[in-house]
């Protein structure tokens, strides 16, 4: 099975994040950048399928030159190769444009199965997998907590608020995964060394045949017009339990009309 995993580099959600003052896009240059956490689960799932059914795993990333760091890290987990779509004109791309570019790149890769994270931690938009399926005219099985591959038949347990749905489709398809699906492996020393030699193909917009005016800040379909930090919350009353902590708590809740 020919598998492509979508991996996005994002600013670390555990560190301070901000928008760039010049154009209100996510500040990536000065941020501490990491692989979008959910995408590590996507990589793990791809590797497990390859181990069980054979095939090849390709990492696909659209992002600035600095994203190579995350690509090498992804490769150190075990994928065979990577494709990095990078072009200065991509800076500030909205989800609609990103899906256009990734769909064009996927068009060159002939994947049976495309695995993505359910959402990225920077935008948290959760839309890319369905956008790609829409553009490519293939099936989308999103929000997976379990994926079963039986020949060309895919079955997913899709996590919902009420429980789950069982959804099925034939390849080619896009699957997106939650962090409940597996436990990503740590790269081994051997993996890290091997990753340095794995092929990483870079592609520009021209090579993909996508017009620069349709992407980036120039082609964005939405814009941030105002940005402000929320005033940090500050702690209020703090009491130490001396035997009546529960009662005091309820007095507070009653005063605030919650009881």
């Amino acid at each position: 099975m020919n598998i492509v995993v979508l991996v996005k580099q994002v600013p670390d959600s555990g560190a301070e994040r901000t928008l760039s003052a010049s154009d209100n896009t996510v500040e990536r240059a000065s941020a501490s950048n990491v692989i979008n956490e959910m995408d590590e689960y996507a990589i793990e799932e791809a590797l497990k399928i390859k181990e069980a059914h054979g095939g090849e795993v390709t990492v696909l990333t659209m992002g600035p030159a600095g994203a190579t760091e995350s690509i090498r890290k992804a490769l150190s987990m075990g994928p065979d190769k990577a494709v990095h779509v990078t072009d200065d004109a991509l800076h500030g791309s909205c989800a609609v444009a990103t899906s256009k570019v990734l769909a064009a790149a996927l068009g060159t890769l002939n994947a049976d199965l495309i695995i993505a994270g359910a959402e990225s931690t920077d935008g948290r938009v959760q839309v890319l997998p369905h956008m790609l399926a829409e553009r490519l005219g293939i099936a989308a099985l999103t929000g997976a907590r379990k994926l079963t591959v039986d020949g060309s038949q895919l079955t997913v347990e899709r996590q919902t608020d009420e429980g789950y749905e069982v959804v099925t489709a034939a390849t080619p398809a896009v699957v997106s995964v939650w962090d409940t699906i597996n436990e990503p492996r740590y790269p081994s020393f051997k993996g890290i060394m091997a990753a340095k030699k794995k092929p990483v193909q870079t592609l520009t917009l021209a090579e993909l045949g996508v017009d620069a005016g349709e992407v980036g800040t120039a082609g964005a379909t939405s814009a941030v017009i105002e940005f402000s930090k929320r005033p940090a919350r500050s702690g209020g009353t703090k009491v130490t339990d001396e035997g009546d902590g529960g009662t005091q708590l309820v007095s507070y809740l009653t005063a605030e009309k919650f009881v």
């Binding site: 919350r233 500050s234 702690g235 209020g236 009353t237 703090k238 009491v239 130490t240 339990d241 009546d244 902590g245 529960g246 009662t247 005091q248 708590l249 309820v250 507070y252 809740l253 009881v259």
Partner: peptide, 23 residues
């Protein structure tokens, strides 16, 4: 506690049952 409007420093196994009884 840096963001709590009201905080109880204590063992939840004591505080929570007492709060439930009080409610």
């Amino acid at each position: 506690f840096e963001l709590a409007d009201y905080g109880v420093v204590g063992d939840l196994f004591k505080v929570v049952p007492q709060a439930a009884d009080e409610i």
